[in-house]
């Protein structure tokens, strides 16, 4: 089983294409929608987690590429601004996936992008505005 977290951006003409349906039905992938948005410019943004056989995952991504869907790893859309972070740890208990963890000796936090599902719970809670999601 392989897993990838992606941010898909698609132009207006693809808004009506049942992308998730095809990924599940035709490519046998498990699709977990983390976030979805259609902006006023009618540009669709979909934050998804795809899992399945490695080969199926590759074929699914190829399908998205053929459709000219812009694909970006999710990790690029989330930013921990370490220089602003004071390691207070107030965000830690709000993170549902343990993407933010504390080293209990140094009491410093670290951020694991690959575990982050971009739920955004930590963002308003950070007094120092040290986490950004560009979605």
């Amino acid at each position: 089983m392989a897993k990838r977290r992606l941010v898909l951006t698609f132009p207006p003409k693809l808004v009506e294409e049942p992308i998730t349906y095809r990924l599940i039905k035709d490519y046998d992938l498990v699709v977990n929608i983390l976030r979805a948005k259609i902006s006023p410019e009618e540009e669709g943004r979909l934050m998804i987690e795809l899992s399945g056989e490695k080969s199926a995952l590759k074929r699914g991504v190829d399908y998205l590429n053929r459709l000219k869907v812009n694909i970006q790893p999710l990790a690029r859309d989330i930013r921990w601004l370490e220089e602003k972070c004071t390691h207070c740890t107030v965000c830690v208990s709000l993170c549902p996936t343990e993407a933010i963890v504390v080293d209990r000796n140094s009491m410093k936090i670290s951020f694991n992008k690959n575990k982050c599902i971009a739920c955004g719970a930590c963002i308003p809670a950070c007094p120092y505005k040290a986490i950004e999601i560009l979605f």
Binding site: T86, H87, C88, T89, V90, V92, S93, L94, M107
Partner: peptide
Amino acid sequence: DVLTGSLSSYSKAK
């Protein structure tokens, strides 16, 4: 069990 968070930074205090 309740998860904790701190507003005061121990590492910065250190």
